[in-house]
Amino acid sequence: MDVLVQLIDATIRVSVPLLLACLAGLYSERAGIFDIGLEGKMLAGAFAGASAAAVTGSAWVGLGAAILTAVCFALVHGFASITHRGNQIVSGVAINFIAAGSTIILGQAWFKQGGRTPSLSGGGRFEAITLPGAEAVKDVPILGTIYSDILSGHSLLVYVAFLMVPFTWWVLFRTRFGLRLRAVGENPAAVDTAGISVAWLRYRAVICTGILTGIAGAYLSVAQNAGFVKDMTAGKGFIALAALIFAKWKPVPAMFACLLFGFLEAASIRFQGMAWPMIGKVPVQLMQALPYILTVILLAGFIGKAIPPRAGGVPYVKER
């Protein structure tokens, strides 16, 4: 029982950055801008967040810096792919490299700790929040355990991430902005004909992406860990991308896909080297590769078909 509770708890914690990055990608890709630079933006956000939090001692300043930095990177992506109609994949790749290199170089130059930022403590971090009444109901069987050990005791950003799921759903499917955002990803010419600026709409979408990847980065370096270490995103941006495809570009399935991939990661850490009945020892590398393998199988069309937004990846040209 304890193992199960710990496993679910760990799943939630590792799913959060995936979920935030995945929702971030959702805004951009639904607007027709492919974004394989989620990884880079998250990394840049994590670095900026940890640096600002280390200097000021405030986690909130860190969060702000993370969001600001990630939005700047997102705007570079927007500038290249919206204004200059560049190749969106190429631009995303560029952003990943610029983020990977500059976080190490600047980290070393500013803090001289081999690319790390100073360790954060106290107000420099988002501490775990105990939900009201968690202590009181702790002894109630099952429900009490779920409430006090699984739901309670996470940092603020965890709750923010999960609240972003219904919020994103509401924005995309119940607001005018969301309708237009989805339309611009399917048929930008129609949106343009209606007198709405395609470029401005897409810029707003990539800004949303920047904000969410910034929060994801801040979660990594200011909440989950106490500081930035180099390359700390370690492919999470790509797993988020995989989850986005897995969820067929929908917010609620995105949450379940992220929880699934988070569970695989948590389980691969928890059961490392354990021998299973019947199958024997499962190599830990297989567990780590499973999200990618599942995504490839999905993309191959063996588990339903993932159809991307129709105008995705195509720069919009008004007329010639």
């Binding site: 570079v76 500038f79 290249a80 792919s81 200059h84 560049g86 190749n87 969106q88 190429v90 631009s91 790749v93 560029a94 952003i95 990943n96 490299f97 610029i98 983020a99 990977a100 290199g101 500059s102 190490i104 170089i105 070393q108 130059a109």
Partner: peptide, 22 residues
Amino acid sequence: PAISRDMIVIIQGLVILFAGAL
């Protein structure tokens, strides 16, 4: 010492950005 080999990664990214996307 302030400039490690990771500088190349930045240059690589900038080349991809300016020679590719832009």
